[in-house]
Design a protein around this nucleic acid. Structure first.
Length: 269
DNA sequence: GTCCAGGTTAGCC
DNA sequence: GGCTAACATGGA
């Protein structure tokens, strides 16, 4: 499939730490999402893609968002963000499946991207069905029930203390917790998600932002905490809570985008 | 050996 | 409510 596209930066989108199970081989990117493999590359204002099964690639990359230009204009007004927006315009917020996103960010806590990738691939190998497309082979991300049925297999995934969080959350998700039945309000939805083991303020914000369609979360990790302190408070350190409140107050409904640009910019400077 | 990594939690005040 | 130490593991 070919499609003409404006304001899309595939590289920045994939490299900005929202999604972990992807790999670049030559000029192609292979992304494993759920039980599908998506093959995609970007050539200026065009994307070329296909997938192992039916998959809405434009929806996944938020390319149907009619407000993107306006959002960029809005957050770009902020002096500290102007450079990030100029440099990475086209960075999109990916829309993942809630369970997979939740599991991913439970694994992300106090870790690093390289290791998170290895952890998630191990989990997929332990439980997930083998899938193959265009010579690229991987494993589907397992259902919560698959993990809940046999949590012992997490032992070999190198998750450390996160193992018990993932096992417990898999159990809850496979036995009643329903992402589709969450309240519409950010605060209420967040409160419910935080009932899950291993899901605190930051991971909850990531889940709401990267999988549930909320755009106002401002997830604060060590990078964002430092960046906000340095750029906006002329201080070397402020609390995570203060950084989150600042982000949401300053950027409102677009805080999620602002955070993602800030994060990617900080990590690459 | 020491330090750090897209934090969360339990235990304390 | 806010503050702290503990939590497993791997790489620099």
């Amino acid at each position: 499939m070919h499609a003409a596209i404006n304001q899309f930066n595939l590289k920045a989108t994939l490299e900005s730490g929202q999604i972990f199970r992807w790999e670049k081989i030559g000029s192609w990117h292979y992304i494993v999402a759920g039980d599908a493999i998506v093959k995609i590359r970007q050539d200026k204002n065009k994307i070329i893609y296909s997938s192992s099964k039916e998959f809405d690639v434009p929806a996944f990359f938020d390319l149907k968002n009619k407000h993107y230009g306006k959002i960029m204009k809005d957050i770009g007004k902020n002096k500290k963000l102007a450079a990030a927006v100029a440099k990475y315009r086209g960075l999109r917020i990916i829309k993942q499946q809630p369970w997979e996103c939740t599991a991913s960010f439970i694994c992300s806590s106090f870790s690093n991207i390289r290791r998170i990738k290895a952890n998630l691939n191990s989990v997929a190998e332990q439980y997930g069905q083998k899938i193959e497309y265009d010579g690229y082979s991987s494993h589907a991300f397992p259902t919560a029930a698959a993990i809940a049925d046999n949590p012992a297999r997490l032992d070999s995934c190198g998750l450390g203390y996160r193992k018990k969080y993932l096992a417990e959350t898999a159990k809850k998700v496979s036995s009643g917790f329903d992402f589709n039945a969450l309240p519409r309000s950010y605060g209420e939805a967040k409160k419910q998600i935080m009932q899950l083991d291993g899901v605190g303020e930051k991971v909850a914000d990531c889940i709401l932002l990267f999988s549930l369609g909320f755009t106002e979360p401002f997830p604060v990790d060590v990078w964002i905490q430092r960046a906000v302190a340095n750029a906006y408070f002329k201080s070397s350190k402020i609390s995570a809570k203060a950084a989150a409140e600042f982000g949401r107050r300053t950027f409102g409904k677009n805080a999620g985008y602002a955070q993602q640009f800030l994060y990617h910019f900080e990590r690459n400077k």
